[in-house]
Design a protein around this nucleic acid. Structure first.
Lengths: 153, 153
DNA sequence: TATAGAATTGACGTAAACGTAAAAGGTGCG
DNA sequence: CGCACCTTTTACGTTTACGTCAATTCTATA
């Protein structure tokens, strides 16, 4: 199988397919296009999140893989683990309504949303405590008075 | 060295010191009092954050150790690493004004505050994105129409 | 004394998401 | 032809803060 001519923004010596319908991309361009490393793409594949075609041993990514990768990255952005993402994607059925998949996604999303809100609360707490102790420390730095138990060992 | 009579809220078979001035506490009570595990206390010691006395091989914690532990827990609460905490505590000098220590603490605190605020921003982003995609999914679940690229694989 | 509970050290395991090195195969360009 | 790149697989390393045994010892109490 032979690939076609070099693409647009490619720093690739090898051939790159940017032709018509079948759009094959190799790992290098794929990585650049989505701001991930080669290692990451191979890792995702190893975890069953991606399944690029092969030309011999060379990975060839299609827009299907791109869509999946987008989902993975979105999932990670909102705090899902790769396992969660995989679990949701594994339910995908191109022939159905994907009700089960959607329900699972919604379920996980609700839980994740709760986690995120809890996290935000924790961070707010931390910010407040930290600010308070910073005030303390500043006092101790300006006034040379009685030391509180704020930054001493 | 012999310890004294059992303490207040102790489920301890062994002796526990709750006498006058010198207040020695063993690892079990220490852990309960601060809501950490034995493993944690030993770990902190291993990392040089705590230095309890010893009765033979038995660790004996004083209020000095309690103060340090409080600081460690506060540090962790606001997101400092144990290394940071140690670095700050190592500068403690009971004979001086601890200016260096305080400055370092303030410095680290400012950076940590920035990190926390960045984190909060990220979490807010995540919450927004997640909420949006949840809305999408809900739509897809109620209407059986054209599937967007939101939860499909 | 037997037993239960507390303590000790040592050392491997865990989680997540890759990083990084190694050793090697393919390929176009000059 | 050979170099410069791209790619491959394998596999150990990293980070942080402990968890989880395991084997052993110490002590007090029944």
């Amino acid at each position: 199988m032979k690939l076609v001519s070099p693409g647009e923004a490619a720093a690739n010596t090898n051939d790159i397919p940017v032709e018509a319908g079948e759009e094959f991309v190799r790992i290098g361009e794929m990585a650049k296009k989505y701001g991930v490393t080669l290692r990451t793409l191979r890792f995702y594949e190893d975890k069953g999140l991606l399944n690029p075609h092969r030309d011999g041993s060379t990975r060839l990514y299609t827009r299907r893989d791109k869509a999946r990768l987008k989902l993975i990255l979105l999932g990670r952005k909102v705090g899902f683990s790769l396992r969660d993402v995989k679990q949701m994607m594994d339910l995908y059925d191109p022939t159905g309504t994907n009700t089960r998949q959607l329900r699972l996604a919604l379920d996980k999303s609700e839980k994740q949303l709760a986690r995120l809100q809890k996290q935000r609360a924790l961070i707010d707490d931390a910010i407040n405590e930290l600010s308070a102790s910073m005030t303390q420390v500043r006092h101790m730095l300006t006034e040379r008075t009685a030391p509180q138990a704020s930054a001493a060992g």
